[in-house]
């Protein structure tokens, strides 16, 4: 009996010791953080990092909701997903003063619509989403959303759009000048009709292939993220990234503190670590988007600082985040999307 107790105590101590060693469990996109940076953090703070990966915001949400919550400390959701996760009670709050480097965040990214006052998240990377056009095929004005929704003759049947409801519907809303999450029935019908009539001009829906179809010439125009478009250009695609005057989509990935994080203290250390200019610069140079932290610009690659995809022209419109709609509007959007792809 005594022996049994001794074993139990030993086990408990061992388990406790394993925790005290310092661990951090990161739920992240694949290939979105350089391994050296993880090694650096592990060394500086004597923490063992395990990383699990997901391939879409929604897959991460489904996985957390299906029972994975409690096994990870931090995740890296996109803007609208931060709000959804917060509303679903999947996020822990960061108290004032818990993050020493929060002051490094650029002013414009502090009071963001998806997480006012940054209660659950810090900026990771941001960028814009619009579309790129092959200038060998079409030489006219590309800075209009008509390229996608009412394309000129040369581009018809050669357009790829992102296979993502949020981005396509937001761009359509911008095209029509309709506010997001509008509950006005006429506006929603207009939106539905626009998408139905535009579909005949589209060759394909695809997000992962957005770059390859432009490089290979399968598509002559395509909705695309700015960093992706820069890569396509560097691979030799004769394309130009558009800044449509109707408006442009902006997105931001954020590091969030998950509820029931097994290693909350280390998660906060990790977030502080990613707010240091030097470290987030390493991420940006790796991922080719933009950081949301001050004092980083000088540490970025020359190419990145001057890329037309990252530096908008002076007359470019302000960006719009995808808004999180209420259940009623969202179900109309779902219906529109299903009708579009039926």
């Amino acid at each position: 009996m005594k022996l049994w107790k001794l074993c139990a105590v030993a086990l408990l101590v061992a388990a406790g010791a394993a925790n005290a060693e310092g661990r951090l469990s990161v739920y992240h996109w694949f290939e979105y953080i350089p391994q050296e940076l993880l090694d650096k953090f592990a060394e500086e703070h004597d923490v063992e990092i395990t990383m699990d990966t997901y391939d879409s915001n929604e897959a991460m949400l489904a996985s957390l909701k299906a029972g994975a919550l409690g096994s990870y400390d931090v995740a890296v959701p996109g803007d609208y997903m931060v709000q959804i996760m917060a509303e679903s009670g999947l996020l822990d709050s960061i108290a004032e003063g818990e993050l020493a480097n929060l002051g490094n965040v650029e002013e414009q990214w502090m009071d963001v619509p998806f997480d006012p006052g940054r209660q659950h998240s810090i900026p990771y990377q941001w960028g814009s989403t619009s579309f790129s056009v092959n200038t060998d095929v079409y030489g006219g004005d590309i800075n209009t959303t008509s390229i996608i929704f009412d394309p000129p003759e040369e581009l018809r049947g050669k357009i790829n759009v992102l296979d993502s409801q949020g981005e396509v519907i937001l761009l359509a809303n911008l095209h029509l000048g309709i506010p997001q999450c509008s509950t006005d029935r006429d506006q929603l019908r207009q939106l539905d009709e626009l998408l139905q009539s535009a579909k005949q001009h589209w060759a394909s829906f695809g997000s992962d292939i957005a770059k390859d179809v432009l490089v290979s010439g399968d598509a002559a125009a395509g909705m695309i993220y700015n960093g992706f478009s820069a890569k396509a250009r560097m691979e030799g695609a004769p394309i130009k990234y558009a800044y449509p005057r109707e408006g442009i989509i902006v997105w931001m990935d954020n590091v969030v503190l998950l509820k029931d994080a097994p290693n909350r203290a280390n998660a906060l250390k990790f977030m502080d670590f990613l707010l240091e200019p030097e470290n987030i610069a390493a991420v940006t140079n790796f991922a080719r988007y933009s950081p949301g932290v001050m004092g980083v610009t000088d540490m970025l690659d020359e190419e990145l600082r001057t890329a037309p995809e990252s530096v908008p022209p002076a007359d470019a419109p302000a960006g719009t985040f995808i808004a999180v709609c209420d259940e009623e509007t969202q179900s109309v959007y779902d219906a529109i999307w299903t009708r579009l792809k039926k």
Partner: peptide
């Protein structure tokens, strides 16, 4: 998705959309 251009739902993508897409139904 890759060869057909994902212009129309198939059973697989329809069901996947419900669990992994915006719909979340």
């Amino acid at each position: 998705d890759l060869l057909g251009g994902a212009k129309n739902f198939m059973i697989g993508s329809l069901i996947e959309e419900q669990f992994k897409g915006n719909a979340g139904n």
